[in-house]
Design a protein around this nucleic acid. Sequence first.
DNA 1: TGATATTAGTCATTCAGTGAGTATATTCCG
DNA 2: CGGAATATACTCACTGAATGACTAATATCA
Lengths: 186, 186
Amino acid sequence: MTNINEYRRTSGLSPEYALLGLLEQSPAHGYELHQKLLENLGEIWHASLSQTYNILTRLEEQGFIQGTTQEQEKRPAKRRFRLTAAGKRRFEAWMSSISACSVRAIRVEFMTRLYFLYTRDPADALEAIQAQNEALQAHIVRLKERLSNIDSGQIFNCMGMSLRIRQLEVLVESLNECKTQIPIGS
Amino acid sequence: MTNINEYRRTSGLSPEYALLGLLEQSPAHGYELHQKLLENLGEIWHASLSQTYNILTRLEEQGFIQGTTQEQEKRPAKRRFRLTAAGKRRFEAWMSSISACSVRAIRVEFMTRLYFLYTRDPADALEAIQAQNEALQAHIVRLKERLSNIDSGQIFNCMGMSLRIRQLEVLVESLNECKTQIPIGS
DNA sequence: TGATATTAGTCATTCAGTGAGTATATTCCG
DNA sequence: CGGAATATACTCACTGAATGACTAATATCA
């Protein structure tokens, strides 16, 4: 039960979980992971190759993945990574969590989760949208309350907040539309 | 003409320019700047006090601001910052630039610029909205083209892109509404 | 009188993200 | 057939965003 370092902050939004998710599907080396990321989530994340390696290095230091070096005669060594038990736990915890209620977190992190949920079972994806939308709506209510407390003379604070609220409201609509685009078994 | 370091990348979105702008209004020390930021743009930026100091330190290293240490008997020294000529140039360049066409950049960076433009001359703010909106619309067109080139089997790439486009479209609407909320002389 | 808030700041650390560089193998084009 | 481009595979050093813990003094209120 080596759960050293297991509870770090839930990430400031990097493709970290996407990498864990890809590794959960099958072990791979960095270059390969970068390719898959581009292919499957390329419009969502924009990680450079070296950024990908950075994250992999960190994940290994934290014990979520483990790389085995494959020496190759002539060519430089490759590293094939696989998920550790701790990594699997981290990924699963993330899969059943809810994203922060910010436009970016939803568009990027939540969409990624949706992708992995969907590849397991489309029904899970629909459920996740439901849950996320409820969280979003609750958040919108809080923000509206906050907006009403801002001195209306502070027009830029008001505008900034209104703008944010409007974006979140549209996000809810968009997620509902997404539901209709996810093909389910039925 | 000391323009060493003058053309760095246009910032990955930190309250940097907000600080320059506040200093352009009048010299101040870090704590004070942090207060003003909270008051005037608190719903837009969320910089901690130490983050504010970090940025001030960097801006000084880069020669955009200059601090004079005021020794005080008993209390630790204060630093009062003022804008240098290079800092003034940097700020002005930013003031007449256009923000990146991302939701966050608009909600945060552009709104900040709007605030400073407005405090100078509300008419400038209206003009800036116009320019920014045109850039946004052009960007939306590009993104739509890109969307149409994504293999429609890549449903998550498609959804991510559609979502982003929708957000930007709403942003354009919102900015137009902002125009009506900005009181002008007339 | 003691607790708490305000003013004013430093320091160390983690993580995001970029750009340049290294090295080899394959493939394509003329 | 040779050279150029492209794909594979990765390292390193850096800037910068952001947080949290810490220091230290004064003012204020109960």
